[in-house]
Structure formats: C-alpha cells, structure tokens
C-alpha cells in the first residue's frame, strides 16, 4: 500500500500523549449513569429525543431497492397514529442503494430533513486499496449521500502505522466534499479502551465530523464503556480546538432503556450542545420500534403487541 499524501492541514497528533484510560474506572462511571432514574415527562422527552437521533439502517447483502424504499417509508412514517413524533435523523444504506434512498426521500419532499447516510470505503472490512475507497466515496456522494460512514484500516492502526490511517481519513474527508464524514473505529477489533481513545483522537484530528463505534458486523459492537471513552475524547478535542465532533454508537442498542442510559451518559459528559441529532446518533434498526412502543406505553399506561408496530 502506498502512503497517500496528507491533504489535511492539522498534523498527526502525538498518540503517545493521549490520556490513558482505566477500564475499571470507566465501567464504574458507566454503572453510575445506569443508576439514574428517568421517569415521567423526563422519560417521554428522552424517548422522543432518542427517536430523532436514529440512523435507521439496513446493511445487508440481500438489500434490494424494494427493501430500501420500505425503510425510507418507515423513516418518514414512524408511527402515524401517535401525533407529534419526530422523524429519524437519517437512513443508512450501502453505496449502491444511495440513489434509491435519495429518490424515496426526495419524492416525499423530505430532502434535507432526513439525511441519506452511506457506508463506504469497502465497508465493513476496509480491505481495499485507497483509490477504490476514494472512488466509492465520491460515487456515494454523487448519488446523493449527505453523510459518509467510512471504516478505518484497523490492520494499519494495530500495527502502529498511524500515519497511514490518518492520511487515509484525511483523503476520504476530501473526497466527501460537502458531505459529513463519520469515521467508524470498529472498536470491537481494537482490543483496549486505550486504543479506542487513541483512534478517536486520530480520527478527529484527521477531520472526522463524527466518530462512530462499530460497523455492526463485529461483536462486541457499541458498548457504554467504549462510547464513554469516545465521548471523553470528543470533549478533550473540543477543549483543545473548540471544534465540536459528533458521536454515533452503532450496533447492539435495540432497547429504549439502554438508549436512555446512553443519553444520560451524553448529558453528563458533553452537556447541552451535543443533545441533538446534529451531534449524536444511534446506529440502529430495531431500536425505533421499541422507543415507539415505550412512548405508547407512557401515553396509555399499557403495552401494545409488537404486531401493532410496523417492521420495515
């Protein structure tokens, strides 16, 4: 692999100076978030907030235009029998499905309101030459993607070739043009929280608009400890540069209760400025229905059968 020339203005950060992470301490802090008791109006507000932060996702080899159109329909009409629900933040699809999703949303007049996110850069493994990744990124943007979810080269990162990873992110950043760039660290392959923190710093310095935990194809995907470490890295980057970077935990968040615990963690780590879909997303597919079911429960006092909530 040839090392691409960096087009980023900021230099490679000193990863040896990145703050260390103590896993036991992180887990204790997470346990504290999970003890917050969220009830009544506060719960309702959180459920709706989480709903509006979802990147409704389908990333299957069996995806078809029909499936993607159904997903977009769901994104627009989450559960029309409950008035006042927000729509999701985005739909997230493979590059070949971007055009389909774009058209489905545009036809309903929702361009700009619900974003089209596309994974790119040889998702999920990232094991392709850089020029292919850049080409793929440009195609997805040209097809109408508002956001690109790239994967980092974990192999290069793990063998210590941070310069390669940095330059690759910077190059994809350039290829994105106006589109927002989410950088997937695939934390389940990085081994330690220290590595998660270093990879977060690397990605943010290279120009990531968002950092994202996982592809959803590797276990473990998003966890609260991993997300906390990334949120702390985001906070330090903000302290240092004044630039806000968004966060997207993805994979494994399918229950409303867990989503609320993530929001507690977000609130107490980064505060008000990040409590919006512009800065925080859940990469999830089944979470939306559980949130809606809980909203229904809050309003009526009883749970409805899952059969009353559309699955697309």
């Amino acid at each position: 692999m040839s090392t691409p020339a960096s087009t980023s203005s900021s230099p490679l950060p000193r990863l040896d100076l990145v703050s260390r992470v103590d896993q036991t301490g992180v887990e204790e802090r997470v346990a504290r978030f999970c003890k917050r008791s969220i009830k009544k109006a506060s719960k309702m507000q959180a459920l709706k907030l989480a709903l509006g932060m979802i990147d409704l996702t389908t990333l299957e080899g069996q995806d078809t235009p029909g499936k993607v159109r159904q997903l977009c329909q769901k994104a627009i009409h989450l559960h029309d029998s409950i008035p006042g629900l927000p729509h999701v933040a985005a739909v997230c699809v493979y590059p070949v499905m971007v055009g389909v999703a774009r058209k489905a949303l545009d036809d309903q007049g929702l361009a700009g309101e619900i974003k089209v996110a596309s994974v790119a850069t040889a998702f999920p493994s990232g094991m392709s030459p850089l020029h292919i990744k850049l080409e793929e990124t440009k195609i997805a943007v040209a097809e109408g993607a508002d956001e690109i979810d790239m994967v980092i080269s974990r192999g290069a990162f793990l063998r210590g070739d941070y310069g390669y990873v940095f330059d690759e992110i910077a190059a994809v950043r350039d290829a994105c043009g106006e589109a927002h760039l989410k950088v997937i660290l695939e934390t389940g392959e990085l081994g330690t929280l220290d590595q998660v923190r270093r990879a977060s710093v690397l990605a943010m310095h290279a120009g990531a608009d968002f950092i994202k935990t996982s592809t959803g194809k590797i276990q473990p995907a998003a966890t609260m400890p991993v997300t906390l470490v990334m949120l702390q890295a985001i906070r330090d980057h903000y302290y240092e540069t004044g630039r806000q970077v968004g966060m997207k935990p993805a994979g494994g968040i399918s229950k409303a209760k867990l989503a609320i615990q993530y929001l507690v963690m977000l609130r107490e780590t980064l505060g008000q400025a990040w409590m919006a879909p512009e800065w925080f997303r859940f990469g999830a597919s089944s979470l939306a229905n559980d949130l809606i079911m809980q909203i229904q429960k809050q309003q009526t006092g009883v749970y409805q059968s899952a059969d009353y909530f559309s699955k697309d």
Binding site: S37, S42, R267, G271
Partner: peptide, 20 residues
C-alpha cells in the same frame, strides 16, 4: 486550552424528573 470559548453547558433542556 481556551476555557472561555470551549465551555460545556450542563444546564440541559432535558432534565431528570424527581424520582423519590
């Protein structure tokens, strides 16, 4: 670090209701 420009705000719109 510039504390005046990069200040986090924890007085959030979303507050926890009393849970006695």
């Amino acid at each position: 670090m510039d504390e005046t420009t990069s200040k986090l705000a924890f007085d959030t719109d979303w507050q926890y209701d009393p849970a006695p």
